[in-house]
């Protein structure tokens, strides 16, 4: 068994889990934060994306033990209290989601994307957004409104 202590969404949490427990299992099953989803088993769909120490990662492809000592932000921790993150607002206002299953991963990937581009001073145009979404699959929206949502939020972040 592995002892895992992680700061999740600003709160210190700890637990004893089997060493083989994936971070996403720890988040969903131990912490019961079920906003982070699992949509594939080959680390491609991106439904499980969370931030670890400020960077987007796939929580299905890392053990909880590997994340020990880190800070994790999940979709549940993105808003500031009742004030939604601009990316959340943009997804709503631009109809960037339908069934909602890929959405948490999309939003976490998108906020990371905008952060990286802002930090490096690069322009996040439509082509760049589409390339950057390589690790996130959506079956409902055809991506049109996801791209629009990210463009909209990028201008507000």
């Amino acid at each position: 068994m592995a002892s895992v202590s992680i700061k999740v969404n600003g709160k210190d949490v700890s637990g004893e889990v089997e060493d083989r427990t994936l971070l996403v299992e720890f988040i969903r099953e131990n912490l019961r934060l079920t906003g982070t989803h699992v949509g594939c088993d080959t680390s491609q769909c991106g439904a499980c994306v969370v931030h670890m120490d400020g960077k987007a990662i796939k929580s299905c492809s890392i053990l909880a033990a590997q994340a020990n000592g880190s800070e994790i932000t999940t979709i549940e921790g993105l808003a500031n209290g009742s004030e939604l993150h601009p990316m959340q607002t943009a997804f709503k206002e631009n109809h960037g989601l339908q069934c909602g299953f890929c959405t948490p991963g999309m939003i976490m990937a998108a906020t990371d994307m905008v952060r990286r581009y802002k930090e490096s001073g690069r322009e996040l145009d439509e082509t760049a957004i589409r390339e950057e979404l390589e690790g996130n699959i959506c079956r409902c929206t055809g991506y049109h409104n996801i791209v629009k949502s990210i463009q909209d939020a990028a201008s507000k972040m």
């Binding site: 808003a79 959340q88 709503k92 959405t103």
Partner: peptide
Amino acid sequence: VLRKEDKRFITGSGKY
């Protein structure tokens, strides 16, 4: 009209 159901999906509170 913007979607009502979005609030839960964008905050991770959907129940699948």
